[in-house]
């Protein structure tokens, strides 16, 4: 039981990160039918900006209050990555919007390599480590399972961000406009919606969430590298498909499920550590065969 509980906690933690990143994929797909392969790298950029800001604001002692400093770091990094995302859309995707589906995907791959190289050239190719000891080391033992305050905070922040996004999409005028554009660009335009501005808005929201994930990964695990966006991006992409791509609650469910699948595979099967990715992808294939639209793809008629 202790073992199961610990693995469940591990899985949920990993899943929360997948879910946060998966939202960016799914929103862009919902609105443009484009798989934004650079999204994982935007998340990575967020992690590096967080690293720089932690050193500039906390380690230097510029802002003595930890909570205030963290709030500023999150807002600044999320803002900067959001602008990068919007800029990317303007430069790399918008000119190709009428060029069919292949060209923007190639452009996205190019953007991904571009971002990785920019970060590598600025920060260098080695691993970077978030400074130790900035967050209080508080942890509990729940039924023998180990939980840290940072882990819990990460989970709460992720759920709040996802909940906020869901509320925004479902209950606000802008959210309604996003849903309208996802259904049909031309009809939305006839209804007086500025489609380009809505797409820009989506490219602000997704990367901002990704950046928050990036900072939390840095704070929680410590180690960051310019290539980390690819691995996380791929897993998050799978999570988005698992839940039903284009569907926001689907991305969240898919993220958590993938994290838990992986962890249970690694925990219970012999050779599970080595085979866990293979098992996770096998489950994905099975789900796609049985439910091609993903887990939540049919239950919600509206895309996004």
């Amino acid at each position: 039981m202790e073992f199961f509980l610990q693995q469940a906690i591990n899985g949920i933690t990993i899943g929360a990160f997948y879910a946060l990143i998966a939202l960016g994929y799914t929103m862009v797909y919902g609105i443009l039918k484009l798989i934004n392969f650079a999204h994982g790298d935007l998340f990575m950029v967020g992690s590096y900006l967080g690293y720089t800001l932690v050193i500039a604001l906390i380690i230097s002692g510029l802002i003595p209050n930890l909570l205030v400093a963290l709030l500023i770091i999150f807002l600044m990094a999320m803002g900067m990555v959001a602008l990068t995302g919007a800029l990317l859309e303007r430069v790399a995707y918008r000119p190709l919007r009428k060029a069919g589906r292949l060209a923007p995907v190639v452009s996205a791959l190019g953007a991904s390599i571009f971002l990785q190289n920019v970060v590598m050239l600025i920060y260098g190719p080695r691993y970077h480590v978030y400074p130790k000891g900035i967050l209080p080391d508080i942890h509990w033992s729940i039924g023998g399972a180990y939980v840290t305050l940072v882990q819990l905070a990460t989970l709460v922040i992720s759920i709040l961000l996802m909940g906020g996004l869901y509320f925004f999409i479902q209950r606000t005028r802008l959210g309604t406009a996003i849903r309208a554009v996802a259904l049909d660009h031309d009809t939305a335009r006839l209804m007086g919606i500025d489609v380009n501005r809505i797409i820009t808005l989506v490219f602000l929201l997704g990367p901002a969430l990704g950046a928050a994930g990036g900072i939390m990964i840095g704070l929680y695990y410590g180690r960051i590298n310019f290539t980390m966006g690819w691995g996380y991006g791929l897993k998050a992409f799978v999570a988005a498909i698992l839940g039903g791509i284009g569907n926001i609650p689907g991305a969240m469910v898919g993220g958590f499920l993938l994290g838990i699948f992986e962890t249970l595979a690694a925990g219970y099967l012999p050779w599970g550590g080595a085979w866990k990715d293979a098992i996770a992808f096998l489950i994905l294939i099975l789900i796609l065969i049985l439910r091609p639209t993903g887990l939540l793809g049919e239950r919600v008629v509206e895309k996004i």
Binding site: F3, Q7, G11, T13, Y221, T263, G267, G272, K276
Partner: peptide, 20 residues
């Protein structure tokens, strides 16, 4: 014996199994 996937950031699943 078992293996990890290099470059990942969370090895708690395999470590929990090792602990058990």
């Amino acid at each position: 014996i078992d293996a990890i996937t290099p470059g990942e950031t969370d090895y708690t699943p395999i470590l929990t199994r090792i602990k058990a």
